[in-house]
Amino acid sequence: MTIHSTAVPLENENVDTDQIIPARFLKATSRDGFGKNLFRDWRYNDDDEARPKTDFVLNSPVFSGKILVAGKNFGCGSSREHAAWALKDYGFDVVVSSFFADIFKNNALNNFLLPVQVNDDFVQNLFDTIQQNPAAEIDIQLENQTITNVSTGEQAHFDINAYKKTCFINGYDDIDYLLSIREEIETYEQVIGY
């Protein structure tokens, strides 16, 4: 599985899920349509779509792409999966950061939004490359677990456990797997005394 795209740089650190999708948008009972409210309060003045904040990166005419490159501790705070739904619905397939909050990482993987964790220097070099040339591309090969800053040739390895990688590549779901071992779960319950 290959993702080859330009990227959007979001240099803020500790981006919490309340910023990614504010709580007032969590009242929906379906998974659809969260993208239009992604980073809502960073994107618009006074919640007014007619008045975008011009200095926010999603409103920039020069940056676009399927990859979001973000500062460290991305996705901290609330467990709301709506944050992953919003990023995916907006059009991102990958988030790159030097580290992710745990719950966000699981939520992303469960929604086929790939979290790519690389070191601080690699992320900083990506920011520099994208700022210098917004058309610069990033290449991600999930099979080999590599990410390449195409302009500089710099390459890094990222971790993903073998099970999740298989799920991701084949579109498998944890629930299908868990349902397939139902008998083992029931045996466990009997042994433990449930």
Binding site: E81, I103, N110, I175
Partner: peptide, 9 residues
């Protein structure tokens, strides 16, 4: 804490 996909799980 868990996400909604995990709640379903």
């Amino acid at each position: 804490g868990i996400g909604t996909s995990e709640v379903e799980m």
